[in-house]
Amino acid sequence: MQRDSEYLLASSLPQSNASPPEGGEDRLGGSRDSSSFDESTLDLELSGEVNLAALEEYAQLQRSIFTTALVVTVLSFTLGALFVGIQFSISLLVGALSGLIYLRLLARNIGKLGKSSKTVSKVQLLVPVMLVLAISRLPQLDLLPALIGFILYKPSLALQVFFESRSRLSS
């Protein structure tokens, strides 16, 4: 409703400029112009605040996702070192860190969508390529644990969605 009235106000002003009133009404028209300028400045400030709040919300979501992913990584590294072996857990850790880098790049590219780019870039896909190339070059790393570590970000995302829906239900 408010948007409709703003739209109507914005569309009526060019008509008054196109056929300005005569005599003393001219000054009144000028004062209208200045008030509309103030309103548009106010609108820009409000939209800027909304934009900042939305960006902060997105940054907070990213922080919570990365915190969850770090916790899952540390847990899986510890469990792997305790129950399987140190080489397995090192490969798992390398894969999990690659997954975190991949997720960070993806989040950054999605943050740029609509502002500086029209599409989501695919640069983040270089991370699994580099991971598999590193595994094939380094004999200390195993393929399977590294790939399991790489997809450890998915349980973190699932946990994040679960926590978020639970907090929404409770509130």
Partner: peptide, 28 residues
């Protein structure tokens, strides 16, 4: 809805992460 930008971007991040994993499986 510019006021819902944060939620939209968050949902997009989650859906992209799950969608792109299919590409990653083929790549791997």
């Amino acid at each position: 809805q510019p006021e819902a930008e944060g939620k939209i971007r968050g949902t997009l991040l989650l859906s992209f992460a799950f969608m792109e994993s299919l590409t990653i499986y083929g790549l791997v």
